[in-house]
């Protein structure tokens, strides 16, 4: 017996999901961060964020098609983390590192928080 492992399958799937997002195909939720709006797929959000997992597994909230985040959340930080969810690439601009880390804490993305901590310590 044999098995063929397509080593780039995960990244090919993620790239297609990001193409669907950019064309607003089958997106099913709008995330409101202060006055900015972000369209996304609930499944991708809950796969990447503990907060969204809690929201969309709650039978009273899973059918919402718009979610407002806490006003303390920085829209730029959220945009960078949303891009990370769909690309695996985290853009770390010096001026935004704290906003990104605080947003990752809020979204319960612990591994990203740990990586940001290590990045800050190494750049100190």
């Amino acid at each position: 017996d044999s098995c063929i492992q397509f080593t780039r399958h995960a990244s090919d799937v993620l790239l297609n999901l990001n193409r669907l997002r950019s064309r607003d195909i089958l997106t099913d939720v709008t995330i409101l961060v202060n006055r900015q709006q972000f369209r996304a797929h609930k499944t991708v959000l809950m796969a990447c964020s503990g907060l969204f997992y809690s929201i969309f597994t709650d039978s009273h909230k899973c059918n919402l098609n718009a979610i407002s985040l806490d006003p303390k959340v920085d829209p730029e930080g959220f945009a960078i983390l949303l891009e990370f969810m769909y690309t695996s690439r985290l853009a770390l601009k010096e001026s935004l590192i704290m906003a990104i880390m605080n947003t990752a804490i809020y979204l319960q993305m612990d591994h990203v928080v740990d990586t940001c901590h290590r990045f800050i310590k190494s750049s100190d």
Binding site: D1, C3, I4, F6, D12
Partner: peptide, 21 residues
Amino acid sequence: YEGVNTIKEMGRSIHEIPRKE
């Protein structure tokens, strides 16, 4: 897949969704 002979395919695995139709 214990005990199965695994062949690694490095090429693309699925179609690429275009940026726009």
